[in-house]
Design a protein around this nucleic acid. Structure first.
Length: 252
DNA sequence: GGCCAGGAGGCCT
DNA sequence: AGGCCTCATGGC
C-alpha cells in the first residue's frame, strides 16, 4: 500500500488521467486502468505494474531512516503514508523533463499528449502510447514540434531522440558519471539530468535542485545540503516537494 | 472586462 | 547576464 494519488500526480509522471472512478495511462503500448477504490490488487497481480510502481523497493526502511534524521520530514512521511518513485521508461522520462523546463505541469501534460498523438500508436480510441525514439524521429521534425508548441525545446527533443542510445551507457554508470553523460545532450542541464536519473533510472539518492527545492532547502534546512538526506535524497525530495505543493493548493 | 508585464519545477551562448 | 516559445495568471 502506498499513496497512489501523490505518486501519480506529484510531478514525476505526466501521462496519468483521472477518468470517472479510475486512473488511466498507456504504458508500454498497453492501456492500464486502475480502480480508484481498489488499485492495489491490480498492481500487485501484474508483474509489469509491480515493477512500474516500485513495489519491490524497501520504502519502509528508507522512510524510517529519513524520519530519524529530521522531525519535519518525519511528520511529512507520516502524513503522506508513502510516495513511491515510479520506474518509468528512461526515454519517455528524458523527453518529459526536457519539456518541463520553464513550463507548468498543466502545459507539460498537454504537450506530451500532443506528442503521443502525433508520433505514438493509438492503443485505444483517443489514447496513444508515448513514442519510442525512432517513432518520434519518423513522425516529427523540429518544425512539427514547434507547431505543437514545444518552442525552443524542439531542437533539444530531436537531439535527445537522436542520442537515445546514450541511455544504455547511463544505466551502467554511477550517479555522478551518468549525470555527466546525460548533460552531453543539448538541452539537458543538471536539473533535468537529476530528474531523469531519479524518475527513469530509480536512483533514489538523486535530489533535483530547481527553484522549488532550492526554496524548500532555504526555508527548512538553511544550513544543510541535499546530501544530508543521503542515501535517500530522491525520496526525501518527493515528500518535501509534495508538501510544498499541497500548501499552495490549499491556499485556494 | 481587456491589456500587459512577469513568471513558469532551465538551459545555452 | 540575457534570451528563449508559449500560455495562464495576476495587477492595473
Amino acid at each position: 500500500m502506498f499513496n497512489l494519488e501523490a505518486t501519480l500526480f506529484c510531478g514525476q509522471a505526466f501521462g496519468w488521467k483521472k477518468e470517472n472512478s479510475t486512473y488511466q495511462a498507456v504504458l508500454d503500448n498497453r492501456l492500464i486502468t486502475l480502480d480508484q477504490e481498489n488499485p492495489f490488487s491490480t498492481i500487485t497481480k501484474d508483474p509489469y505494474l509491480n515493477h512500474y510502481f516500485d513495489m519491490e523497493y524497501p520504502y519502509a526502511e528508507a522512510e524510517s531512516v529519513l524520519q530519524k534524521k529530521d522531525s519535519h520530514l518525519a511528520s511529512l512521511i507520516t502524513a503522506h503514508v508513502s510516495i513511491h518513485i515510479l520506474n518509468q521508461d528512461p526515454f519517455q522520462t528524458m523527453i518529459s523533463f526536457i519539456t518541463s523546463q520553464n513550463n507548468t505541469i498543466k502545459r507539460i501534460r498537454s504537450l506530451l499528449e500532443k506528442l503521443s498523438q502525433q508520433c505514438g500508436r493509438e492503443v485505444e480510441e483517443g489514447l496513444y502510447s508515448f513514442p519510442t525514439a525512432d517513432e518520434l524521429l519518423r513522425h516529427a521534425g523540429e518544425d512539427t514540434l514547434r507547431s505543437l508548441g514545444f518552442g525552443y525545446r524542439s531542437p533539444y527533443i530531436i537531439e535527445a531522440a537522436r542520442s537515445h542510445n546514450l541511455l544504455e551507457e547511463v544505466a551502467r554508470q554511477d550517479d555522478e558519471e551518468s549525470a555527466r553523460t546525460l548533460q552531453r545532450i543539448l538541452g539537458i542541464g543538471a536539473k533535468v539530468a537529476a530528474c531523469i536519473l531519479l524518475f527513469g533510472f530509480g536512483r533514489k539518492d538523486v535530489f533535483p535542485l530547481d527553484t522549488w527545492t532550492k526554496k524548500i532547502m532555504k526555508k527548512y534546512y538553511p544550513t544543510s545540503e541535499p546530501s544530508f538526506f543521503s542515501p535517500y535524497g530522491g525520496i526525501a525530495q518527493q515528500h518535501l516537494f509534495y508538501h510544498e505543493r499541497q500548501m499552495i493548493e490549499a491556499h485556494w
